[in-house]
């Protein structure tokens, strides 16, 4: 028996970083918190950030994007079970736009599937900031996020000009309903605007000599 997918009902995302609504996604790598913040700007509404009580790395108010601190709630449950329970409960609740969680242990398939079902019930998007290879295969997409340095010649004058360089390499390593890929993005964190930066590469053929 074949299942006919209604391709027309699945609109193509406007840009590659749009997370599918009502699903749970995963992000890993050292830049995953930046990616999560980038996503908060694309989800107007209440944002819940669930992180373990013993996690020393906490978001700092004055470094957050404009307008996020009013709608951000931090949950600091004591145990991993409580953390997953909080995520599931928050995903099930309608008034939340985005749930960000930082689980410390491997997400089992059962846990991942439960979260997907909760997200579908509450029509909420979830983003799990996992450790390396600690994800569950029930995830909709998995992103690998790394901060990238801008390799420009360092001269005394250029240092100040390029001081705001905030390049990120966001690679989509798993996607259930689409293609994978990787992008280098310049996103400075204050607003939702970002620039796609073409990859640096070797020029294939020599440039035309000037006449």
């Amino acid at each position: 028996m074949t299942t006919l997918h209604n391709l027309a009902s699945r609109p193509a995302p406007a840009d590659p970083f749009t997370l599918t609504k009502t699903r749970v996604h995963e992000a890993e790598g050292p830049g995953r918190r930046s990616f999560a913040l980038f996503q908060t700007l694309r989800h107007p509404g209440a944002v819940l950030w669930v992180l373990p009580a013993h996690e020393p790395q906490r978001p700092m108010l004055r470094g957050l994007p404009v307008g996020l601190s009013e709608r951000l709630l931090l949950l600091t449950p004591r145990s991993e079970t409580d953390l997953l329970w909080c995520v599931e409960e928050a995903l099930r609740a309608a008034p939340v736009a985005l749930v960000i969680a930082e689980p410390q242990q491997l997400l089992s398939l059962t846990a991942g599937r439960r979260l997907q079902l909760a997200a579908e019930t509450g029509r909420t998007t979830g983003l799990m900031l996992i450790r390396e290879d600690h994800g569950s295969s029930a995830t909709e997409t998995r992103w690998r996020c790394d901060p990238v340095s801008a390799h420009v010649p360092v001269s005394r004058a250029a240092t100040h000009a390029a001081a705001d360089s905030t390049l990120h390499r966001w690679a989509l390593s798993k996607n259930k309903k689409g293609t994978i890929g990787h992008w280098v993005v310049n996103w400075h964190g204050a607003s939702a605007a970002f620039d796609l930066v073409p990859e640096t590469g070797e020029r294939r053929q020599p440039a035309e000599p000037a006449r």
């Binding site: 009580a53 108010l61 601190s69 931090l74 949950l75 409580d82 409960e89 939340v96």
Partner: peptide, 27 residues
């Protein structure tokens, strides 16, 4: 209704993990 639903969520979360663990950032 949205505010009510959010308050209900905070109540549910707070009753399980403790109300001092459902936090908000203030400058």
């Amino acid at each position: 209704r949205h505010e009510d639903a959010l308050a209900d969520l905070i109540s549910r979360l707070g009753n399980r993990i403790g109300f001092d663990r459902v936090l908000r950032m203030q400058p």
